[in-house]
Design a protein around this nucleic acid. Sequence first.
DNA 1: TCTGGGGTCCTAGGACCC
DNA 2: TCTGGGGTCCTAGGACCC
Length: 439
Amino acid sequence: MYGIVDCDNCYVSCERVFRPDLEGKPVVVLSNNDGCVVARSNEAKALGVKEGMPYFQMEQQFPNAKIAVFSSNYELYGELTSRVVSIISKEAPAYFRYSIDECFVYLDGIQHGTLQHWGEHLHQRIWRSVGMPVSIGLAPNKTLAKIAAKLAKKFEVYHHCCLIDNDANRIAALKWLPVEDVWGIGRRYAAKLQALGCRTAYDFAIHHKDWVRMTFNNINILRTWQELNGEDVVPNEMMVSTNHQLTKKKSICTSRSFNGMIADLDALNTHVSNYASRCAEKLRKQGTVASVVGVFLSTNPFREDLPQCWRYEEKRLVTPSSSTIHIVKAAKEVLKGIYHQGYLYKRAGVIVLGITPDSPLQQDLFDLDAEHIQKFRQLDKVVDRINKRYGTETLVIGSQQYTQKDGKHVETDVFANAIKHDHKSKNPTTRWSDIIKLK
DNA sequence: TCTGGGGTCCTAGGACCC
DNA sequence: TCTGGGGTCCTAGGACCC
């Protein structure tokens, strides 16, 4: 049996941990730049606030509703959800952290008859010690477990934990679930299935296997179909008792929308330098180097009155690297190539690819920079230590600094300076954990 | 005025190898 | 008239997830 533990309205619940007065009231959390609604309390959902709705539209549409609004505070959400995972790790034989707010568990070794009790107990323990409400789904495979969790979230009779362990309740669940809500069926497949007459998960599940093969010619949706019918075939991640931090990323992207629009190459350079620097940090943090640095640049697609463009190019590094100086230099070169005057840009990003472990580093015979590699590694090590000790962006390279027209430097808090976060909550846990780390 | 930011995997087709 | 039979690797595009 598998389980999925899913935090209810995760970001909203995190904010409520420190604002218990908001219990029972409509609350939303916004994306970066206070752009879109990314999390809603049940009360906000009941009011009709839609997922992904732009914040300004929400204000227009609900001028009189008293909705509590928070800018996103990812340090806080990371800290609280890690505490949830830490409890799960003590209660489950094995687990896999699937996303910031979801964790799969393996229930080998837990008596079948006690599964419901196990789930309800876990919910209680997480609620009491972290203050995070979770919903738990238990089933013979991960697809059905996800469905069970939806039921647990929706109907109070389950006491936050729903168990699908026989054909009767499996079929009842499938008949209840719209096909577009099945894990693994996205917008495209849902549209196709609906056009073919499948309204619920059940309508899809009762088709013949060969029909699924012929219609989609895709292994993933076939596996989804098999799991709806009770098989356990979706591959498991390295689920042992390990944290997903240990599985290294194969691509890393840092991108932001700007607060306003940018025409000028110098200003774009500063932003791209910061994203590149962040990518290099992420590479070092997981002990890897990258061999390709990509940059993309785009205008604001919502401004149909303005000329539009979307550009992406990448550059291969002669020697794979995680050095801030190397990655930033490469990113700036790519940017220079894709930048065209005459557009108002809204968003940029840096992607690093071709990621490999940093230990047996392949050096190129003709790379003139090769001799600097050891020096740069030492430098990055020191910079990382200082930034960890005194806060991110304590030490940055010159091109990361935002400058004013007269050439004077402005604040070095580069990300905060560039992004609108008008409703950000204080960060009680981060300070506290910093103190612990320093000790 | 204002519209997020990350990731993964699969498939088809082309280049190239013997 | 008729033109083999395997492979691998890379890339672009499309699908999905949170």
